[in-house]
């Protein structure tokens, strides 16, 4: 780690100003599980680290008409929350699938949404890749079994978050605070593809902080689930995951939100699959058609064609589970 100055933020309003206006100069410390990794690898060498853990208003889950989740709510708290379990199973399952017990105790929901990619080229200082201002995406010509099959180019990272697909499938909104004030936006619009924003994965500015996540109350007849596939269950990121939220009216799908994790540089809305289900019943044939449609537009790399099959099978399983 390159040394830095350290500040305990005492008030939320101070944070945007303390962050400053340029990337790379300041970093927010919340759970720290991603930040310290990047600092140790010297991927980031901020002059200042601002610890926001002391900001009480950013902690905890409030239940109103839906959920209001403070950005500092830990993944463990989210996974253990009764209301989340009962009304938003997709979110509870996603949270429980993240990392390890220790990391869930440390990591926060905000951090899970804002974490940087796990691509091994990105994570190695010695690889001066596109994400780090270099000239090429090493994964394109190198080892890419975990990289993107959808939405890739010019960088082929995948977004590692488990909570993001679940929250997007639930129609969550986030609130960002900058020196200009608050701004609310659908989480769906938060993430950006490399073609739009090569160096960062979302729309945040250097002097912004993600403060709150709001999850709308789901209509009656909503069923949801999160299936995550990883090579091993004990500490691993998703190779592919699916968050599925269906609103059923009788046996007919009134609306469907299917969001994939681990396969694209952003949490990936499988819109073709959603369309394939809407207005249909969950028959084996309709499920199969939606599963196939979930990877529409997939363009696998040299070593990751298996992720297309895998993803389709996961979508099929998720839908079968929700049908059953």
């Amino acid at each position: 780690m390159v040394n830095f100055e350290y500040i305990d933020a005492k008030s939320l309003g101070d944070v945007p100003d303390l962050l400053g206006k340029r990337w790379g100069e300041s970093e927010i410390l919340a759970g720290g599980t991603d930040l310290l990794d990047r600092l140790k690898e010297r991927l980031d060498t901020p002059k200042r680290v601002i610890n926001i853990k002391g900001l009480k208003e950013l902690h905890g889950i409030q239940n109103g008409d839906g959920l209001k989740i403070g950005t500092l709510t830990t993944i463990a708290e989210l996974a253990a929350d009764e209301r989340v379990h009962k009304s938003y199973p997709v979110l509870a399952e996603a949270a429980a699938s993240i990392a390890t017990p220790q990391l869930r105790n440390m990591g926060t929901v905000g951090g899970n949404l804002c974490q940087r990619p796990r691509c091994w080229y990105y994570r190695g200082l010695e690889y001066k890749c596109l994400k780090k201002g270099g000239a090429k995406c090493y994964a394109a010509e190198g080892l890419n079994k975990y990289n993107a099959i959808l939405g890739g180019g010019p960088s082929f990272i995948v977004h590692p978050s488990d909570s993001a697909p679940a929250l997007i499938a639930l129609g969550a909104k986030i609130e960002l605070l900058s020196a200009d004030g608050k701004e609310e936006m659908p989480l769906d619009e938060f993430f950006e593809l490399p073609i739009d924003n090569l160096r960062r994965e979302n729309v945040m500015n250097p002097n912004e902080i993600l403060t709150t996540i709001t999850v709308p109350k789901q209509p009656n007849g909503t069923r949801s689930t999160y299936l995550k596939f990883r090579e091993k269950q004990s500490l691993d990121f998703a190779i592919s995951s699916v968050a599925a939220v269906l609103q059923l009216q009788g046996s007919t799908v009134k609306s469907a939100r299917i969001v994939l994790g681990g396969v694209a540089p952003i949490p990936w809305r499988a819109e073709a699959a959603e369309a394939a289900l809407t207005g249909k019943t969950l028959t084996a044939a309709n499920i199969a058609a939606a599963a196939k449609a979930s990877t529409d537009g997939a363009d696998p790399m040299t070593q990751n064609a298996y992720k297309v099959m895998l993803t389709q099978n996961l979508v099929k399983r998720a839908l079968e589970k929700l049908a059953g």
Binding site: D17, G20, G133, A179, N197, L198, R200, V203
Partner: peptide
Amino acid sequence: SGGISRRSFLKGLGGGVAG
């Protein structure tokens, strides 16, 4: 050139205490 998102480019920066 990368590095700055469309949103930040369009929105610009400024205002507030830091300004």
